[in-house]
Amino acid sequence: MEKFEKLLTIQDLCKYYPMGKAKKDGDKKEIILKAVDGVTFNIFKGENLGVVGESGCGKSTLGRCLLKLIDATDGKIIFNGEDITDLNSKGMIQYRKDMQMVFQNPYSSFNPKKTIGKNLSEVAEFYGLKSKEAKERIQELLQYVNMDTQVLGRRCDELSGGQLQRLAVVRALIPNPKFIVADEPVSALDVSVQAQILNLLYDLKDQFHLTMMFISHELTVVEHICDRVMVMYLGGMVEIGVTEEIFGNTMHPYTKALIASKPKDFPEEEKEQVILEGEVPSPTNVPTGCRFHTRCAECIKGKCDVEIPPLYKVADRHWVVCHKAKEAAKAYEEARK
């Protein structure tokens, strides 16, 4: 399959944090916070994969694990055919060029004591560009993001959030990466500026042949710019598929609830009321069986709370982790006929 060439393969990735010991049922037990718990998926060349979920579902941890900013506890990360799971920071240097990140808060992602020019040229030098080349590269990129070279002399407190976020994108593009993780890049920005950054990311992806992982909690934003969407709940993946399938043929009850609880676009809009009750359980105490069964309206007692649901293929490029997926898919097929 030439069309879908894998850039990244993630196998059974886990990230656990030990939280010390506590007394539970009489004896002392190790408490483990399962931030990411056995996630397997691929990222294909040239696509924009959206990752959505509520806060604390492990989406940011996952992004950081992929770039090896934090070490995974278990599992494999294969980038461009090579296993990078066990590389230390020295070994990662050659891969860093290809994998970059844009963070949520643009104000804290630059050194406030140095000028923007210094901030950017340091990065360029780290990736082996001579000072003249670095200057040219930065100027070229500034043109792409529609900014004047004057900003290079400023410090970050003199610039607005939108400007800084564009500069953060410039910094990520300096080494000419193949893969970018954008972790909530528009959440800290105002609505009018959000659109600027979204358009920019959309254009740059084509221009620089980038592959992107776009982490966000805003469904409409993800629907707008992503090709495929992965839905996470409590450290695990519950549904993954092409955007049209996820939004048009939603299978997992959690995804359904998530889509139903996003605010309306227009005041007169009528919508399904599938408001989720309760809140996400603690990741130190993940429910047995299906991790969503405690809040699921369609939970089958004796099955969902005991057995871990399998990965079920609903349609081409659409997978769901749910016991009821088979029935739901059948019902959908029949309804379509």
Binding site: S192, A195, N199, Y202, L219
Partner: peptide, 15 residues
């Protein structure tokens, strides 16, 4: 400038 549900790709209006 706000993305609406059901809209894919394309340019958003920017200010």
């Amino acid at each position: 400038s706000i993305p609406k549900s059901g809209e894919r790709g394309g340019k958003l209006v920017t200010i």
